[in-house]
Nucleic acid binder design. Sequence first.
RNA 1: GGCGCCGUACCCAAGUGGUAAGGGAGCAGUCUGCAAAACUGCGAUGCAGCGGUUCGAACCCGCUCGGCGCCUCCA
Length: 449
Amino acid sequence: MVFDVLRRYLEYSGYAVTFVKNFTDVDDKIIKRANEQGVSCDTVTSKYIQAYHEDMGKLRIRAATEEPKATEHIADIIHLTERLINKGLAYVVDGDVYFEVSQYPEYGRLSKRRLEDLQAGARVDVDERKRHPMDFALWKSSKSGEPAWESPWGPGRPGWHIECSAMSIRHLGETFDIHGGGMDLIFPHHENEIAQSCGATGKEFARYWIHNGFVQINKEKMSKSLGNFFTIREIFEKSEWSEAVTGEILRYFLLSTHYHGPLDFSDQALKEAKNALNGFYDLFNRLKETAESGGGDGGSLQTAIERSKKSFTQAMDDDLNTSAAVAALQGLRSDMNKLLRVGLSTEDRQTARQAFRSFGVVLGLFQLDRWDFNVRIVPKPAQLVLETFPPTVMVTKQMVEAEIDGKVAERIEAKKRRDFKRADDIRAELKSLGIALEDKPDGTTRWKR
RNA sequence: GGCGCCGUACCCAAGUGGUAAGGGAGCAGUCUGCAAAACUGCGAUGCAGCGGUUCGAACCCGCUCGGCGCCUCCA
């Protein structure tokens, strides 16, 4: 999501962005899984790629310009490998091709590692056919039962790093601007990409590298062994909020910290993100209403928007400081509320809402028309015990709007009669359905889910 | 052992030399039949600890402590 925001901000700033996301659709794990299930690798990968797209969609992460797959670039990979062999940076052993790190003096520049240090840490089971323990495979000869492609070195498949170099060069050219990834990829993956690409082309590979920090769970790392591992999918399945709202909350939460640092995930953190977003959407609801009193001060509105725009872009320009950028929007929210107390014309309200929308496009926030955070009603625990399939049955219960409006009107009548008991009962009834009421000074009532 | 990221109030979090943004929660007040929302006020003499440099340090230097990542055919 960090890179989605980066892309959005670059576009907001007037750049034309080509965003390429590489998929590795052949490796040991995939082959193993395909064999276990008795299906093709393609079946396995397309299933996961589809699931990935679904999850990204829920987070409103935009699709990349290109999403190349390794298996669709075998020719590019072979060509790149040949270039490296011709330059004396790679060698062939029994149908395998290895990159020779000792022939590439810059190796270790990105990760600030020296080959000597790496040797000390290298583990025991070094392939003896390699000239240096850190040499890595560009091409692997195929064993029986593995998918294979023809190559000058015999049937085989690409190594583990070459595909990214080949695909980047194909879709972005030999030199491009920004390469991103998790911090765990710095070594060896990104280091190897540089070695392969610069080695072959003699040109710079990526001008800038951006690495994001990790998600932790309650201050612990997320891992299967600790049993605290979960997926985005599960967050959505377990969420008591609607999908659109959950996606927004997740985005807000992820934006609340700098991409570089660790991010501690917890129910409380999500709750806080939701509460903060409530404040924004409450404001948006008020901005949607037509001005009952008119008047207002369009001048201070423009001033407030300009001021927040300045802080917002300053923050984003400063290494994508989304936390400070969000703070700028909170400042705007506060300013808007103050202006609204004084009174803003209907037109000014639309201007204000539009300002939030345009900042929101950059962060992927504030685009929802309704903030229906209570739409999903989770079944009672007793029902969950039943071995139903799917195990968690989500029941969606929504009152039709006309019905709610009727109740609200009835309550206003009750209030006029000063029958506060009846009024409170209606409010309680609606609350149990997740509908909150707010009485406005003019005697009307606004409701929200 | 080597290379990194991080440690700021109850919680989240910005701030890389000029005297601690912002949000959430909480408390008090305004408004209100009550509530909700909004607004106003309160809230770290201190930024993991110790020492140093400086007129001045959360920020620079050194050491220590704590959390996490990488150093491996997961990409």
